[in-house]
């Protein structure tokens, strides 16, 4: 019998190919960071701006050299917070319903329908916000209070957009909790609600938190809806019913116009992009920490 090692070329080829696939995604990320960083440096190297003005100013008017980031940040945060206030509770409730309450048949019908929601183009959602949600808000809160373009409307619709994301990922996490834990809970005389919320949900926390984070990142980065429905012009306001421009909305509007390659406007959008990137990155890091801190590991 020949026990000598045989050369297995296919094995090395496939290994190299898989490594290449992994490398491409990592290199792309690094490339994006590099470009963002380089162009941002050019922006901050300009004598009209510095970090203090950037983070201290409440006015963003590139034409007159005002580069205070806060109007864009507050609009982004407001729209995202509103979106999360809509998506997290509803998404989680849908997930708990699907995983713990719904009969198999209902689940097999509902889940695909919900996932169709995620497939609707965001431009459709944008006009849905502008032509349905905004009039609705104006009807409820009054036309004087609610402007035609406002972050509340955009935020709510972003929330609707990410509900399937939250519910689908959370449902996967909840369903992965072993049935033996549910049985143990029922065996102690727990109700379905107690079992779902106090046994299954904590055990699935890491997966649910991951769903939340993906949803928040998605909401912060959402562009089309805010570009259509939130407003076209930086506005430093804390009222969700006023028009305001988010970071993404601003980038898309500026880069959509004719912008010369070397202008400070052009560089400024990279700085905004970098900040956006850092924002979602820090959210990810924070969530990793939260999950490690609070998760209940089964097995």
């Amino acid at each position: 019998m020949d026990l000598r090692r045989k050369p297995r070329i296919a094995e090395s080829v496939i290994q190299g190919f898989l490594f290449l696939c992994g490398a491409i995604s990592i290199l792309t990320t690094l490339g994006i960071v590099y470009i963002l960083g380089r162009e941002s440096l050019l922006f901050f190297a300009n004598e009209e701006v510095n970090l203090l003005k950037f983070f201290g100013g409440t006015e963003w008017q590139p034409t007159i050299g005002r580069f205070g980031i806060w109007p864009l940040v507050t609009a982004t945060l407001m729209a995202s917070l509103i979106a999360m206030a809509v998506a997290l509770p509803i998404g989680l409730c849908v997930a708990i319903y699907l995983s713990e309450y719904a009969p198999q048949r209902t689940r097999s019908i509902l889940k695909p329908i919900l996932e169709v929601l995620a497939g609707i183009p965001t431009v459709v959602y944008g006009y849905f916000a502008l032509t349905f949600m905004t009039p609705l808000l104006r009807g409820i809160f009054g036309r004087e209070l609610v402007e035609i373009y406002n972050t509340a409307s955009a935020g709510i619709v972003i929330g609707i957009l990410v509900i399937p994301l939250v519910s689908s990922m959370s449902e996967d996490a909840l369903s992965a909790v072993p049935g033996s834990l549910r049985q143990a809970s029922y065996g102690l005389g727990a109700t379905r609600l107690e079992t779902s919320v106090r046994i299954v949900l904590p055990a699935a926390l890491s997966g649910v938190a991951a769903a939340f984070i993906v949803a928040i990142s998605r909401a912060i980065g959402e562009t089309m809806i805010v570009a259509i429905a939130a407003g076209a012009g930086p506005n430093f306001t804390f009222s969700p019913f006023r028009a305001a421009e988010t970071m993404t909305g601003h980038i898309v509007r500026i880069s959509g116009g004719d912008l010369s390659y070397d202008s400070i406007d052009y560089n400024s959008i990279f700085a905004i992009g970098l900040l956006l990137f850092l924002l979602t990155l820090s959210l990810n890091v924070l969530s990793q920490w939260i999950v490690r801190r609070f998760r209940e590991e089964y097995e």
């Binding site: 072993p178 033996s180 834990l181 049985q183 143990a184 809970s185 029922y186 065996g187 102690l188 005389g189 727990a190 109700t191 107690e194 106090r198 046994i199 904590p202 055990a203 209940e296 590991e297 089964y298």
Partner: peptide, 28 residues
């Protein structure tokens, strides 16, 4: 089920502390 308890084939403690495992059933 509260009056008729159950112990299963495979030990299935909750992924909580020892204390909380015992306390949980009485707490609810």
């Amino acid at each position: 089920r509260r009056r008729i308890g159950m112990v299963f084939q495979k030990a299935n403690p909750f992924p909580k502390t020892v204390y909380e495992n015992v306390a949980w059933g009485t707490r609810i």
